[in-house]
């Protein structure tokens, strides 16, 4: 069972929710797909780490074979290739590794070479297997890294939480693509509603069963809750705006492992989530 935890912006509580739900489970797998800023590992501090580098294919030009037809340059939507004084110049950092230029080259002057873009680290933290994708700074896209990460043998072997990147762009789509269920984390502000709506539209587009968890809840008005009611989105949990929880979290501690109160809160949330996921996936299978 794979549950993707996502939100329309950063700092909403994706990592808080996924790290604590995974910790509350008897056995779980936590996959950090927020490859530009993977921070779940700061909480889990996993041991026995093994790491595997991830590479992509980028074009490599044989200048002797190039006739200067520029078909590669015209094809490249990312403008990663230039032709200067009879020489093909490839901008590795701009290339999105689609391979189109190599296919289009009539002289076979372009071939592919490997370029390492990051790594996948696997380790263990008590009851949780922690798998982290780490993209090297400056790389154009984390998608190939997330693909590799989610292909890990462990994925889905136990209750799996996929901690998604923020937003609703390609890397988020890649992260939720194979998920059985999507959990959207939202903040109780108008801005939070705007961001919730972004991921809500995305999960609908992907036809994923979904629900919301409301974070930083205060007494009184909650625009995110109103939005959920209006759109008929189930709310599976409400996390209070609580300085003790905030302090634990900002010290990179897992609240479930530190305090019985939070263990109880996330355990009951986990039960509701697990029941809901089971119900939805049976209904959709």
């Amino acid at each position: 069972m794979k549950i993707a935890v996502l939100s329309g912006k950063g700092g909403t509580g994706k990592t808080l929710v996924s790290v604590n739900l995974a910790s509350a489970a008897k056995e779980a797998i936590y996959m950090d797909c927020d490859v530009e800023e993977p921070n779940g590992r700061l909480f889990f501090k996993p041991k026995n780490i093994t790491s595997e580098s991830v590479s992509i294919k980028i074009p490599f030009a044989d200048q002797k074979l190039c006739i200067g037809c520029r078909k590669c340059i015209d094809f490249c939507k990312f403008n990663a290739i230039a032709f200067i004084i009879n020489k093909v110049i490839v901008f590795d950092d701009v290339c999105h590794s689609c391979g189109g230029c190599v296919l289009f080259c009539p002289e076979k002057a372009l071939s592919e070479k490997d370029k390492i873009i990051g790594e996948v680290q696997s380790g263990v933290s008590e009851n949780v297997s922690v798998i982290t994708g780490i993209l090297n700074t400056g790389e154009a896209s984390g998608v190939p890294l997330i693909k590799k990460l989610l292909n890990n043998n462990l994925a889905g072997k136990a209750l799996t939480f996929i901690d998604c990147p923020p937003g609703s762009a390609c890397i988020v789509m890649e992260s939720i693509k194979d998920a059985d269920y999507c959990l959207m984390v939202a903040e109780p502000t108008l801005f939070g509603v705007h961001n919730l709506n972004m991921v809500y539209e995305l999960v609908k587009l992907f036809k994923k069963p979904h629900a919301a968890v409301l974070n930083k809840c205060l007494e009184g008005e909650n625009p995110a809750e109103d939005f959920c009611r209006e759109k008929d989105i189930k709310i599976l949990g409400k996390i209070p705006f609580d300085s003790e929880l905030g302090t634990l979290n900002s010290n990179a501690l897992i609240s479930v492992r530190e305090n019985q109160k939070y263990r109880d809160m996330f355990s009951s949330m986990l039960q509701i989530v697990a029941k809901e996921v089971q119900h939805e996936t049976v209904a959709n299978s």
Partner: peptide, 30 residues
Amino acid sequence: ASQGGAGIKAAQTIVDSKVSALLTPRCGEN
């Protein structure tokens, strides 16, 4: 209007126009 790599494509246009110098307030590294 390029999604990305505008500087590279623009520079290619400038190179192809066979100029010897570019006068500009600023320029990106690519």
